[in-house]
Design a binder for these strands. Structure first.
Lengths: 128, 128
DNA sequence: TATTGTTATACTCTATAACTATA
DNA sequence: TATAGTTATAGAGTATAACAATA
């Protein structure tokens, strides 16, 4: 059920992401960096459940468009401090607003109580 | 969150499926056919969110092991009635029991109420 | 001509291994 | 020697298109 629901929601979000010029992984990265800057790319990759090699083209694209910065750590010049920019935050917020509008299509079927529990449990199972 | 949780649960189920000699899609097909026989392969594919070409090797493997039957429909010899066998049902049940044991690892964190709501809503969003 | 099932092929996504630079 | 990041390559998973049989 999880897999099928995921496929459906991903398919539904795709046009929204495309309209904002973002890929799924690009959006996930911006959302992760929106909460706090991250010191290494490997840490970011692990925190979003991706391979470290897989996010490199994603970071390249985001950086080229000025949505993130990759700042070499002065204390360890191998590592890159990853930070979202103002421009990155604003496109992330705009995209998120559109996506949440789309999610209403699903969530509207639920009672307020069911909806609260479902979202809270989903968060708990994913991050807890 | 859905995508990440799906990846984690799929990864956790993989060893169980392998132990029973089933693939993820093989297990999904058996679960679908366990509820009722299905008249065409395309219908089955759509109902489980797969491509009709993608399930053919899956059906071949299941049939070779005697877990399903593909009976040509006498009224329309293009179509194949898909049915689970006794042997297919028993391996599906055994696998399902093991998987549910593994899911307890996740669900045990939840209160009885949260758990009931989450599973019910998940089902509703997926199939409703 | 349209549909069911099938096969072959191409494409996308992902992971593995090898490389550079820093430590 | 080990680690962060990168690149190139191979592998799995998936979708597209063309085919045979039947309607």
């Amino acid at each position: 059920m999880l897999a099928q629901l995921t496929r459906e929601t991903v398919a539904a979000e795709q046009p929204v992401l495309t309209a904002h010029g973002l890929t799924m992984w690009g959006y996930i990265v911006l959302s992760a960096l929106d909460q706090s800057a991250i010191r290494t790319q490997a840490t970011l990759a692990e925190s979003i459940g991706a391979d470290k090699t897989r996010i490199i083209p994603v970071l390249d694209a985001l950086q080229n468009r000025g949505y993130i910065e990759r700042i070499p750590d002065p204390d360890d010049r191998r590592a890159r401090l990853l930070e979202i920019t103002e421009s990155g935050r604003s496109i992330k917020n705009a995209t998120q607003a559109d996506i949440q509008r789309g999610e209403e299509h699903w969530l509207a079927q639920l009672s307020a109580g069911d909806r609260e529990v479902f979202l809270r449990v989903l968060q708990q199972l994913t991050f807890g």
